[in-house]
Write a protein that binds this DNA or RNA. Structure first.
Lengths: 233, 233
DNA sequence: TAAGATAATATGCATGCACATATTAAGGTG
DNA sequence: CACCTTAATATGTGCATGCATATTATCTTA
């Protein structure tokens, strides 16, 4: 019956996937127990478990301890997107990368960030404006706040040679973060920086990262016109 | 030394994570072999393997067979984003959902999609325009092409009661797809549909899904102003 | 010395077993 | 009948072991 004779967990996963796609097991329906599947495929329960765990990770089945495994009713469309360092993103396209530091100073955290990005009251944060280039054409504009309590060495860095983007990835690893994506209209200064006309719709990303409970950095990236963030599912 | 005495794989993962974050193991450095770690933690190699595999999945370490495991040099910022059915996204916000089918007809595939979305030459595809509402305010505008060879039952569906979005998720499961996100300026008709002014920057998403080699649907979603797509890392 | 065969090694995976844990079903009691 | 206790059960996890596989190091050999 089964053509994929492989007893590997990937082979079993493939067969389970096929049954889900071909509606052998309807959405919402319960599928056989690990033990039964193990017997059917002639393998150990561990191996079936691995396959089912993987399907559960990707959201295709839902597992509950005593209740068993069932095909997900609304397979959530889950996409993993990789957000590389800008330099690598540009160079991966075969273009040359360069960045230019437009501004760098210490200042109090702006009130609009007080909620999401809580630093010690009264302490200054490092503020940076950077323009990233791809083949000498503007690629993205960045505004960043760095919490000096989380990354004190940043105070002595100029960020002219290595971008803050890259330096932080290597020197202030984060434990978790929030990212959001949205669209903005270019205002006059922004359109000038990104070499476009005012009003142009631009793709933007905002990100806050923490190390434990300590906020590290808040960054807003606005990409030049035509930018697309892609991924596969 | 170690405070997390747990021998669970998650406990071990936590300790490994701590060592990476605290720079006990520098980026690029090789970390001890599974066998050594197993001995140190007093557990089976399988358990260490599980922890390391998980770290490798999230991109924090790089593993190669004979070469060993090393801390990733450029921990790629990987984010998993969940793209729910629009109705569920709206209802999760405590709002009421409604959609309105603006247009529905059979037509040849437009030339600009011939490359990415290859259907049998000369055959028609189902084209739909839908407006999605949240609490009676426009939420997103959708343009969709459905390949009737992949989902023949779609020909007989009106998509007035259940949106194509939802119907396809339940009736034409896909195996893989491409997604991209970008920003567009509202034109006159779009701004009218989304109750905004022309030129407004809008967040947009384009998605193609396949079942095996057969394309199922191509959809372009344009969200009302202010939309943010969020995720955590 | 350079190229190719061979051995060594770290991770990858499968197995059989045991026990933990969450959840549901069944049973008992007032 | 409602409520609580207890048992049953499917998944979750850990362990010891063995073999598979990719990759690197080493040893031949021309």
């Amino acid at each position: 019956m089964t053509l994929t004779e492989t007893n590997s967990w990937t082979g079993i996963r493939a067969e389970l996937l096929r049954r889900i796609h071909d509606r052998v097991w309807q959405p919402g329906a319960q599928i056989p127990h690990e033990a039964d599947l193990a017997e059917e495929f002639g393998c150990a329960r561990t191996t079936v478990n691995r396959a089912l765990r993987d399907l559960a990770d990707s959201g295709l089945v839902v597992r509950k301890r005593r209740a068993g495994t069932r095909v997900a009713l609304n397979p959530p469309q889950r996409a993993t997107l990789t957000i590389p360092i800008l330099r690598e993103e540009v160079e991966a396209l075969g273009r040359s990368y360069r960045h230019s530091l437009l501004e760098r100073d210490l200042r109090p955290l702006p009130p609009m960030l007080h909620g999401a990005f809580q630093v010690t009251l009264g302490s200054d944060v490092l503020f940076l404006k950077t323009l990233h280039f791809s083949d000498e054409r503007p690629y993205a504009y960045e505004e960043r706040y760095i919490n000096l309590e989380a990354a004190p060495e940043a105070r002595d860095r100029s960020f002219e040679d290595v971008s803050a983007n890259e330096w932080l990835v290597h020197n202030a690893p984060y434990s978790h973060g929030d990212i959001s994506f949205f669209a903005v209209n270019a205002d006059k200064t922004l359109s000038h920086k990104l070499d476009t006309s005012p009003g142009t719709a631009l793709f933007a990303m905002e990100r806050i990262t923490w190390a434990g409970g300590l906020p590290i950095t808040h960054v807003r990236l606005i990409f030049a016109p035509g930018y697309r963030m892609r991924t596969e599912i």
